[in-house]
Computed example of a mutant assay.
Amino acid sequence: MAGKVVLYYFNGRGKMESIRWLLTVAGVEFDEVHLTARDQYLKLLKDGDLMFQQVPLVEIDGMKLVQTKAILNYIAEKHNLQGKDLKERVMINMYAEGLMDLMEMIMMLPFTPPDDLKSKLDNINTKAKERYLPVFEKALSGAQYLVGGKMSLADVELVECTLMLEEKFPDILSQFPNTKAFQNRMVNLPAIKKFLQPGSKRKPQPDEQYVKTVLEVFDMKMPILK
């Protein structure tokens, strides 16, 4: 019998946060091993656990999985969050990958030199309102979920992404009433409502300590530390 799911990552959001969200919605309990020192990362490399020398790493069902999209797709398939057929699945994946593109821009903000921060924020705000949110606003017109009338990976990523956007731009959904109504429904689902409470395994916005730890573990130097 497989043991509890274990996540290997930093004590912060990054690319692991979408995995935490999906496991939570699927009702799967998980433990976390937080990377705080370079030696931990080097040991994972030495043990052959990181296929492409990258985290996230998720231990699940007797496997050690890497690559965020592969991990998300495995969990979604296992817990019936990936549509009923191939055509639904490809739509879900298109939405999910678009959301990941947007969230990755937000993830990089803590590693951005201060002089570049405003331009990066302006770029995210513009792209969110002109490229990404209109897609979801249209898909949610008269629909409870994005694909097939049933919750999927894409829906979980959308609520995560909209909350991230509102942290940076509090009024950004004012022009997108369908998306805001969707978010309101999702955050009131019992599993998500609990996940959003203090003391859950949801991570806060990245701070200087998170950035410092990531750079030390990967032995990187960034202009932000000047």
Rank of each mutant, 00 (worst) to 15 (best):
K129S: 15
D207W: 08
Y210N: 10
K201L: 09
Y210I: 02
N123T: 15
V156G: 01
N188S: 12
E208A: 13
M222Q: 13
K168Q: 15
K129D: 12
V135E: 05
N188K: 15
L165I: 04
L225C: 12
E166R: 07
P206K: 01
F136C: 00
N125C: 11
R185F: 13
P190K: 11
S200M: 11
T179P: 06
L153K: 00
K150D: 12
P134F: 02
E137F: 05
V187Q: 09
V211D: 03
I172Q: 06
A139H: 00
E167M: 13
F136D: 01
G148I: 03
G142A: 07
A191C: 11
E166K: 08
S141A: 13
N178Q: 07
I172S: 05
D207K: 04
S200K: 09
C161L: 09
Q183T: 13
V217T: 09
K129Y: 06
I172A: 08
G142S: 00
L225P: 07
Q209A: 15
L140D: 00
M164Q: 15
F176H: 08
S152Q: 01
L215D: 03
Q205L: 11
V135T: 09
M164C: 15
I224H: 00
K180H: 14
K150M: 11
A139V: 01
T162F: 10
A128C: 12
V147M: 03
V156C: 08
N125W: 14
F176L: 06
R131V: 15
T162I: 10
V147R: 00
F169G: 07
E216G: 05
G142K: 03
L215P: 00
G199R: 04
E160V: 08
F176Y: 13
F182C: 08
K129T: 13
A191S: 11
L189R: 15
V135P: 06
S152D: 05
P198E: 04
S152Y: 03
V135A: 10
E157F: 13
Q197A: 14
N125H: 13
Q175N: 12
Y132R: 07
D219L: 01
V135G: 03
